[in-house]
């Protein structure tokens, strides 16, 4: 099954929203307990003090994920650099996507933006598997000024419909894709986005999916870019 990485600040009492846990029921999940330390604190020193508590929290969370459906395990990392740790573990467990936690109830409708330079095939493949035979509707969203946009949107919608998924499309002509996406978030319970290539704006403004999660309140699933290991096992 496809694996999703669920980073969780378990020591700060963060817990996975019920709706997100349910949504990920069709996936294998690796819960990543991630404790970010100030530079003054050696990672090993924090481990000695917090390991036990973190492990018990992670065991509980993994157990809940198992009840929700897929296989689940956990990893615990003490780090000074959250992004680096998430990337490394995602590579090691070969996760197709990682989840950004957010509040939601039952998931009935997903927003799936295809704007920008993202791997559309990988996103659609992931969405198909995530929805499975459940009654979850999809809004495919595309903000672009390009003429090819409608074509891409219709082709993508058709692909999902062929798998029996209820799809609506939303096309916006705009040069501000991020802002229009935020406006489209209400009425959706969660968002599935493709990981964008590293860019200047990402460097200046922070990661787009993190900003999206902050602006939309709900959970965000980020489908990772293709990594070197992917080809071999498929």
């Amino acid at each position: 099954m496809t694996r999703v990485l669920m980073p969780l600040a378990v020591l700060e009492g963060e817990s996975v929203a019920y709706g997100l846990m349910d949504l990920l029921g069709t996936m294998d999940v690796t819960v990543l307990g991630c404790h970010v330390l100030p530079e003054q604190t050696p990672a090993d020193q924090a481990r000695e003090q917090y390991e036990e508590r973190a492990v018990s929290g992670l065991e509980d969370t993994a157990e809940e994920f198992r009840k929700a459906g897929g296989a689940a395990d956990y990893r615990l990392v003490f780090t000074h650099d959250r992004q680096q740790s998430v990337e490394r573990v995602a590579d090691e467990v070969d996760a197709r996507a990682y989840a950004i936690n957010g509040a939601t109830g039952d998931v009935e409708r997903l927003l799936v933006p295809l704007s920008g330079d993202v791997a559309v095939d990988r996103i659609l493949e992931f969405v198909t598997e995530l929805v499975g035979d459940r009654d979850i509707a999809i809004t495919l969203f595309l903000a672009s000024e390009s003429d090819d946009a409608d074509d891409l949107l219709q082709r993508s919608a058709q692909r999902l419909r062929d798998d029996g998924i209820d799809v609506t499309t939303e096309r916006v002509v705009s040069d501000r894709p991020f802002e229009t996406l935020i406006e489209a978030v209400p009425n959706h319970d969660a968002v599935v986005v493709g990981e964008a290539a590293p860019s200047l704006s990402q460097f200046l403004l922070g990661d787009e999916s993190e900003r999206l999660a902050a602006a939309s309140v709900g959970p965000v699933l980020v489908v990772r870019r293709e990594t070197a290991g992917d080809g071999a096992e498929e």
Binding site: V77, T79, Q84, R88
Partner: peptide, 10 residues
């Protein structure tokens, strides 16, 4: 990383 029984130190 340094990998202990239950945790990893990045």
């Amino acid at each position: 990383a340094t990998v202990t029984e239950n945790a990893e130190l990045e």
